[in-house]
């Protein structure tokens, strides 16, 4: 400290003292380091995010460049399917919206898109856009284990779930838009409550993030 102050007379730049300058440069350094730090805390986060975003937020790099974490989409959602990502999802993802299909499903009402100030979310056609894709988890799915349940098949609004000859559901990837109604209503966790975990018999995953189980 004292050394710095002695030198300060010779190293003044536009009236900024050396000590102040060092502090300032430290601040700049920290803000610059924050970027890669956030990216590296969860490696490959932007490329391989597992979070399902509301409509129009599917391209992760575009989405994360625009989302200002204002919470408006979540508040606007009439079906409460939009939840908040936590710090556990990574520093970069924290506070951004993610879809939680245990709470609701997306009916593409576009209310979240209308309130999004930065257009991080965008209007999409529910016939051509996939916000995610359903995957049947055969270990959890009741008909794949014993048979009998056809609930997702009956309720799917896009008729994207079909039954094979033994009445076991499978997904038509061309029709599934990832609305998540199947995940919301799947009774696997209720009927098979001795099974550990929260996973239901069908789950929405990001497009291309996992090969169908």
């Amino acid at each position: 400290m004292e050394k710095n102050e002695k030198k300060s007379t010779t190293l003044e730049i536009k009236g900024v003292e050396r000590r102040t300058l060092m502090k300032g440069l430290g601040c700049v350094g920290v803000t610059l380091a924050l970027g890669p730090a956030a990216l590296s805390l969860v490696p490959g986060e932007v490329k391989h995010s597992k979070l399902i975003r509301p409509p129009g937020g599917q391209v992760e790099r575009r989405f994360s460049s625009l989302c200002v974490r204002c919470n408006r989409c979540q508040e606007a959602c009439p079906r409460h399917v939009i939840a908040t990502a936590h710090l556990g999802d990574g520093l970069l993802a924290a506070r951004t919206p993610k879809l939680d299909f245990t709470l609701g499903y997306c009916d593409f009402c576009m209310k979240c898109v209308d309130v999004c100030p930065t257009n991080a979310l965008a209007r999409v056609d529910k016939k051509t856009t996939h916000i995610g894709i359903a995957v049947i988890l055969k270990d959890q799915c009741i008909p794949w284990q014993w048979g009998g349940c056809t609930r997702c098949f009956e309720k799917c609004p896009e008729k994207a779930i079909r039954l094979d000859d033994q009445k076991r559901p499978y997904i038509d990837p061309a029709k599934c838009n990832g609305c998540g109604l199947c995940e919301q209503i799947c009774p696997a966790t209720e009927l098979r409550s001795y099974q550990p975990g929260q996973t239901r018999g069908v789950e929405i995953v990001r497009l291309g993030s996992r090969i169908e189980a």
């Binding site: 209310k111 309130v115 100030p117």
Partner: peptide, 12 residues
Amino acid sequence: KNIAIGSLSGFG
């Protein structure tokens, strides 16, 4: 109340 006012980060 789901009015979507937002926060100081983005409001409207």
